[in-house]
Design a protein around this nucleic acid. Structure first.
Lengths: 257, 257
DNA sequence: TCCAGTTTGTTCCCACGTTCACAAACTCCT
DNA sequence: AGGAGTTTGTGAACGTGGGAACAAACTGGA
């Protein structure tokens, strides 16, 4: 029932181009490449979009690639190349019209339309996500908060009531939900994921510290707080080793003296 | 005072190899390459570590690269190449000793030691982070929760009291804090970041939806929930366009019939 | 109209990351 | 001991991404 598209081809290994993400759809299959936008560029488009919104709020109508690049924290050459994948939306000798470019990027990403989202697992993190204004303000609408713990059900969090996980299928069908967020503990994440996929969800944002296996055609992006910290720790350790052969604690004290 | 090391070379653009991260330290400067581990590999080491811990908990003493790769959700060739940057910790014809490899990776990342961490901005997200067990269980110790809002100060969150942001410098000095987490609203993030850097913090995990500019020698990693969703939305939109020229909502209904 | 100045879009090249494929090295069985 | 089977570690090919540099295209002034 209500199964998602395309489960052919067997389980694909879960890995993508960038750090925390993974796509299972075939990168370059028989299908025509169309005007395929590089994954690295796609990951930066939302940053450009936010920068443009900030500029627009300041009343700036036009900007150069240099200005926008600075606002987005990237190289201007990279910015121009990224934008060139979308089309020629700038004017040579002048720059980019902020409102126009903003709309074009939003349309390309797909945030001009409204995306219904369900969040599963309303613990500490789920609460924070439910209340996070960045979701709702950027084309995403949380349509349901689900939790399997009856003690939590009925509680009101950010204008929504927590409902039973068993209502998942009905909610997905009713709202046409394509995006699900998993904020459960790690042990239940895979089960939840399977249910989401079976219900028709084809994009999943996973906060649980587990590797999810999904059928082909389903996208998973992972956000893992502890992994981010560990990466920082690695570099921090190297800094201490390289800069000062002594104790790093001591080094800072000496420098401040 | 208490300034961090190395502000030479001017401000570096904030961008890294992978999606959400950025390092400002020179990638390949005059310094010898030592046994430099590629950034992409570093980002995967924590995943391998977690997979090894899971295997160890199941009582598995030895595993092949194929098994470990599956558990980590990556290609076995990639896994072997990644591990080869650390050294030759496997045995040909046999595989890897789970406990031994686990220790080696933990040591390489630096999570055998204890990293003191401060969290700034104890709103919804800050609460969730303070209660997140994944932090404390993997070599990180939250030593302080800071917020500039007096109304929040004194509140107890996960065995710690929220303290005033003005105590930052004293806390950093006392505990030798090198890693800071920013969970404030976007407008105050840059100010907080500057204070952290000035106090001696050299690694920052940023949850605020803003581009932070930091001096050279300071690492910033960014976690942006809304950006992750937008990337999913982009792919979701493409799926709908390619798979079914009709209305995506309709397509699912038809398939389920 | 023409020329100087500005900024985009694009090409070329290099570095990095991924994957394949295979030699080296180990175990186990005969 | 020797050979078959297994698995690691790595060299080489391939693809993707980043950055410099430049031609194309626009504006504005003379």
């Amino acid at each position: 029932m209500t199964s998602a598209r395309s489960n052919r081809n067997g389980a694909a290994p879960q890995e993508g181009a960038d750090g925390g993400a993974s796509r299972s759809t075939p990168a370059a299959s028989t299908r025509a490449p169309e005007r395929g936008i590089p994954e690295a560029t796609v990951a930066r488009l939302p940053i450009y979009l936010r920068a443009l919104i900030t500029l627009a709020e300041r009343g700036i109508a036009t900007c150069s690639s240099e200005e926008l690049a600075t606002a987005a924290g990237v190289n201007s050459a990279k910015l121009r190349k990224d934008l060139s994948y979308l089309g020629s939306y700038g004017t040579r000798g002048v720059g980019y019209d902020v409102e126009y470019l903003r709309y074009q990027i939003a349309r390309e990403i797909g945030v001009t339309q409204d995306w219904p989202v369900v969040i599963v697992g309303i613990g500490n993190l789920g609460h924070a996500l439910a209340n996070y204004s960045g979701f709702t303000s950027r084309g995403f609408r949380i349509v349901a908060l689900l939790d399997s713990d009856p003690a939590r059900q009925g509680e009101e969090v950010g204008e929504l009531n927590i409902r039973s996980f068993s209502e998942l299928e009905a909610i997905v069908d009713e709202h046409g939900v394509a995006i699900g967020v998993i904020a459960t503990p790690a042990p239940s994440a895979q089960q939840v994921c399977d249910r989401l996929v079976a219900a028709g969800v084809t994009s999943i944002l996973n906060f649980a510290p587990t590797v999810l296996s999904v059928p082909d055609g389903v996208d998973v992006r992972k956000v893992d707080l502890s992994i981010e910290l560990q990466i920082l720790a690695y570099h921090e350790q190297r800094k201490a080793m390289n800069g000062a052969p002594q104790d790093p604690e001591l080094a800072r004290v000496v420098e401040s003296a």
